[in-house]
Simulated scan of single mutants.
Amino acid sequence: MNIRLTIDGQPVGATLNDNAVSRDFASLLPLSLDLEDFHQTERIAYLPRKLDISGAPTPATPQAGDLTYYAPWGNLALFYRDGDSASDDLIVLGHVDDRDTERLAKAKHITIEAAS
């Protein structure tokens, strides 16, 4: 599924993976979220509700540009640096088409909506 992110006013295309957790995330769209830095690796925001993680895909090490969901906290994470390792609690939902890591690292606000 194609989605559109607007990061600090600039549109960016993105693609959600085809799995049950990504579809549950898509059911929340559109979203408008404030982002904060986490461990100088990712920008995070809390979703309005936790996602259903039954049928979650196999854990993968996040890469710069990945849009992920951290199940224990119920937060969305947009990685601007590669992660260290895979975690059973971190689910890769999709990825940003333009992996401008400099812009991702400075992002303060994001809107996410289905692409038309």
Rank of each mutant, 00 (worst) to 15 (best):
M1K: 09
M1D: 15
M1Q: 12
N2C: 00
N2E: 15
N2D: 15
R4W: 10
I7R: 04
D8G: 09
G9T: 04
G9I: 07
V12S: 10
G13S: 14
A14H: 07
T15V: 12
L16I: 00
L16A: 03
D18K: 01
D18C: 02
A20T: 02
A20H: 04
A20G: 01
V21L: 09
S22K: 05
S22G: 02
F25S: 07
S27M: 10
L29G: 06
L29W: 11
L29Q: 09
P30R: 07
S32D: 13
S32L: 08
L33W: 11
D34M: 03
D34Q: 13
E36P: 00
D37G: 09
D37V: 00
H39G: 05
H39T: 11
Q40I: 01
R43T: 01
I44S: 04
A45D: 03
A45H: 05
Y46R: 14
L47W: 07
L47D: 10
L47N: 08
P48E: 06
P48K: 11
R49N: 07
R49P: 05
L51V: 07
L51R: 13
D52V: 00
S54D: 15
S54H: 13
A56F: 06
P57G: 04
P59F: 04
P59I: 02
P59Y: 04
T61F: 01
Q63C: 02
Q63W: 06
A64E: 03
A64H: 02
G65Y: 12
D66K: 08
D66N: 15
T68V: 06
T68I: 01
Y69Q: 09
Y70W: 15
A71S: 14
A71K: 07
P72W: 09
P72H: 05
G74H: 11
N75E: 07
L76Q: 10
L78C: 05
F79N: 11
F79A: 03
Y80N: 10
R81W: 07
R81N: 12
G83P: 10
G83V: 01
G83L: 04
D84S: 15
S85H: 14
S85T: 00
A86W: 07
S87F: 05
S87C: 07
D88V: 05
D88Y: 00
D88L: 02
D89I: 03
L90Q: 08
L90R: 14
I91T: 09
V92I: 14
V92G: 00
L93P: 09
G94Y: 08
G94D: 10
G94Q: 09
H95Y: 10
D98C: 00
L104Y: 00
L104T: 01
K106S: 14
K108A: 15
K108P: 08
H109Q: 15
T111N: 04
E113D: 14
A114N: 11
A114S: 14
S116M: 08
